[in-house]
Write a protein that binds this DNA or RNA. Structure first.
Lengths: 297, 297
DNA sequence: CATCATAATAAAAAAACCTTATCAGTTAAT
DNA sequence: ATTAACTGATAAGGTTTTTTTATTATGATG
């Protein structure tokens, strides 16, 4: 009942009307003149009215009928609308525009992502990035609830997350953190039993030791401090020692040092996590690829 | 460089997305399922991104990608825009909507057009009519300047208007108008010379007699009254007599009568006038046809 | 009046589109 | 587990639509 106009067809119409001629319009459309004639005729059939004045009688230049006159602006609007949308989608597909939502564990978030993001965003000024940082569990949660496109976290128990895809990137070794003037500070590698002699402060990352032979340490810890700032302050004040993954160690600290834990050798694998049944938006996908490529070297 | 999306294609996309399946969408589109598959694939190629999740792995129901999710509302908007425009144009072509501008000489304007227009407009509530009345020359002018779509007037000197098309409709005979108790009122037909014996009042339509043998009358007229209301008042007061085309004679007058002029037999042909190189808008055309048809009987 | 434009038309070719038939994978129920 | 009943993808062939080539008709122009 209601005809379907084709964008191409409308373009032909507009060109004939504006260039005042079928030949010129044909050239503009990279078609031959009869193609345009037929295209217009088809349009007229669909609309049920001529859009150009009878062109066998006295037609110097192609001229619109009153009906065509009324149709012209509408046709132009529709074409413009179409072009706007396709351009939007093209930009989108080229990840020149869009919105990326990203979550990461704080260590990577503060130590490696800033410069990475800066570089990535450099040639895409209309790209919008929302960024969240929290611990691994929270990050995994946000991924699951689709609050973020993808996340950067360590995937502890892979088997508990069959719906997720994990690309490992960084290996973050656990080490001991203590003041520079602490007896342990001189050592190159440390055996966990050595730590029993010192006051141990546990923190949010301590459960990485849970599955290792060093787990007895945790039970003997007198302090638990979740906040990193407070933890650093405690350590600098000489209250005790703790363990941290290397990426979580505040490099800028002058008075603290990091000594890798030799036995047990515990690493947390941090990487990119996404849902495996949901594909990424072009922009998010580009960023993920970018991160993976950068991490390769 | 920039792809051209087809409305049909977008419709397919929207249907698959909203009905969550290719089969259902195919049914809705009166197509087979492979047709929809190919249509969607073509769309994805044009946009450079998949709009539906990979559908060979684990696909329960067709599901949008984030990209597709973003595209869906835009596609719907564009389709809606297209449909709005085509519907407008269809209504227009069926003269259910539109704007007609019309000019007419006063006699027809007041005596025949009112009921005609009323009938015409009856089933087209969104049809807009602008109406002007003025003398023939003014009407012809408005046609020429395209201030009106067409006009109703008498075409005096056809040869002076080669650009106009004239469809004669009414024949308006000139007659004498006088009070009912006037000596002439008894007669059936009048010879112009009879009028010399009475006081003659000329008016705007008097020049119709200019080219006839009765022209001497005009020189001998003491009064010239252009305004119809004043003219009637004068006649009713018994000041004199005048000539008028029959359509200009106020039928509702109780005290005046109209006697046809036998010699000379002068008629003005009133009809529909339009430009001959410009076609009418669908609504105007419908009205013109309507008037011509009505006049035929 | 001949020539140069214009656009319309007819027929053939090309391209786009849709269909039938078939395949491959997933889910649900025996 | 095996089958039945879905899902959508794919290939080959036919149909429709669109475009082109070639030609015609008509008005404008010198």
């Amino acid at each position: 009942m209601m005809p379907e106009l084709k964008i191409t067809q409308l373009r032909h119409f507009v060109w004939v009307a504006e260039l005042k001629g079928f030949h010129v319009a044909a050239e503009r459309a990279h078609r031959t003149q009869p193609a345009i004639s037929l295209s217009i005729k088809d349009l007229e059939n669909k609309l049920g009215e001529d859009v150009f004045e009878k062109r066998n009688t006295k037609s110097a230049k192609a001229e619109l009928t009153p009906f065509g006159e009324l149709f012209l602006p509408k046709a132009k609007e529709l074409i413009a609308h179409h072009d706007r949308i396709t351009q939007d989608m093209m930009l989108m597909a080229d990840h020149k525009t869009g919105h990326i939502r990203l979550a990461s564990v704080p260590s990577i978030a503060s130590q490696v992502l800033p410069e990475l993001l800066l570089e990535f965003v450099a040639d895409a000024p209309d790209l919008n990035v929302s960024f969240f940082d929290d611990n691994s569990d929270a990050v995994l949660n946000m991924i699951e609830n689709q609050q973020v496109d993808f996340g950067i976290a360590s995937l502890f128990h892979k088997d508990e997350h069959p719906d997720k895809l994990f690309h490992p990137i960084w290996e973050d070794q656990i080490g001991v953190v203590c003041p520079n003037d602490h007896p342990l500070a001189k050592q190159k590698g440390i055996h966990w039993k050595t730590l029993l002699e010192h006051r141990f402060i546990s923190n949010g990352t301590s459960r990485l030791l849970e599955d290792s032979e060093a787990s007895p340490l945790l039970g003997r810890s007198q302090f638990y401090i979740s906040n990193m700032i407070s933890l650093i302050a405690m350590l600098e004040a000489g209250v005790g020692i703790t363990t941290l993954p290397r990426y979580a160690f505040p490099k800028e600290s002058k008075s603290l040092c990091f000594i890798p834990l030799d036995t047990p050798h515990v690493v947390r694998r941090i990487g990119l996590v996404q849902l495996n049944n949901k594909s990424l938006s072009p922009a998010a996908n580009a960023l993920a690829d970018f991160i993976l490529a950068k991490a390769k070297r």
